[in-house]
């Protein structure tokens, strides 16, 4: 690890201020650090100033249901906090499912909800000693190289996939972020729009302006009777990133789907929302046949690489399973 300076912030506003002192590119917020320390150790990132935001836990580590049913997740709530919360298990079990199979107990105890959204891809070219495009190089080595864990959707020059389990679920729940910025400003942004595939100008999977700090994740009240399911396919039963994951959230009335959300993980640079399938499901009765049709539609535009064609049928199966589980039916 390169040397760096280290300061502590006791609030989001203090972190914003300290980030500005660190200069335009050299300062980073650190919370659980489970990803950032690895990146720094491998010298993939070498910030000159770390702003430790954990001392702001008194203000930013909470899980609260509002009177209207919305859930507010403080940026510093850990994945373990979410996993162990009985109210979330009862009212938003899809969120419990999302964190339960993420990483390991130790990592869940350290990793924060906001940090989880900002973790970088696990692509071995990005993590290894390759001057890959995402690190500022000219070429994505995975595109024609070892790409069995890589993307089947998207048009970014980078074919790494987003590793978060939380992200697709938050997209399916229409969650929003509150982001603190310079001068005491704050803005809200749908989680879906927080993510954007890396471009030549911004080689990163999320969009924060310099000096901004995520302070809260807000999950709006879901329609009465809404149900969801998160299906994560792994190559072993523990401590694995999703090969493919599916977050499905359905609201039904009289057996007919009124509103559907479907977001996939492990298939693109960002959580991959499939609006065409949401439209297909709306107004229909969810049957195994409709779930199968939805799964076909969702993968229609997939373009697998040389070694990840298996993800296409895997994603179809996971979508069928998630939709039927969300509708309270077993496949």
């Amino acid at each position: 690890m390169q040397p760096f300076d280290h300061v502590s912030a006791t609030s989001a506003a203090a972190a914003v201020e300290l980030l500005q002192q660190g200069g335009p590119s050299g300062a980073r917020v650190i919370a659980g650090g489970t990803d950032l320390i690895s990146l720094m150790r491998d010298r993939i990132q070498s910030p000159r100033l770390l702003v430790n935001i954990l001392p702001a836990a008194a203000a930013l580590r909470y899980l609260r249901f509002e009177a209207d049913g919305a859930l507010r997740v403080g940026a510093l709530a850990t994945l373990a906090d979410i996993e162990r919360d009985p109210h979330i298990a009862a009212r938003l079990p899809i969120l419990t499912q999302a964190v339960r199979d993420a990483a390991t107990p130790q990592l869940r105890a350290m990793a924060t909800a906001a940090g989880n959204l900002m973790q970088r891809p696990r692509c071995w070219y990005y993590r290894g000693e390759f001057p890959c495009w995402l690190k500022g190089g000219d070429e994505c080595f995975a595109r024609d190289g070892e790409n069995k864990y890589h993307a089947i959707f998207g048009a970014s020059p980078c074919v790494a996939v987003h590793p978060s389990d939380l992200a697709p679920v938050l997209v399916a729940l229409d969650a929003e972020l509150t982001i603190a910025g310079p001068g005491g400003s704050a803005r809200t942004l749908p989680v879906e729009r927080f993510f954007a595939p890396p471009t030549d100008d911004e080689r990163i999977e999320y969009r924060l302006q310099p000096g901004e700090v995520v302070s809260e994740i807000r999950v709006p009240a879901q329609p009465a009777g809404a149900r969801g399911a998160y299906v994560k396919v792994m190559d072993r039963q523990a401590w694995a990133f999703a090969l493919v994951s599916v977050a499905a959230q359905l609201s039904e009335r009289d057996g007919v789907v009124e509103r559907a959300r479907l977001a996939l993980g492990g298939v693109a640079n960002v959580p991959w929302r499939v609006a065409a399938v949401e439209d297909l499901l709306t107004g229909q009765r969810l049957t195994p046949a409709l779930a199968a049709q939805a799964a076909e539609r969702a993968l229609e535009n997939a373009h697998p690489l040389t070694h990840n064609g298996y993800k296409v049928p895997m994603a179809r199966a996971a979508i069928r399973r998630a939709l039927l589980a969300a509708a309270g039916q077993e496949e």
Partner: peptide
């Protein structure tokens, strides 16, 4: 040294964590 193996596990305030991914200053 990267949070995969757990050999560095210690308890902080009773919670099991990986000490290899934790900064002492934190």
């Amino acid at each position: 040294g990267m949070g995969d193996c757990g050999a560095c596990t210690v308890l902080i305030e009773g919670e099991a964590v990986y000490s290899c991914l934790t900064l002492a200053v934190a």
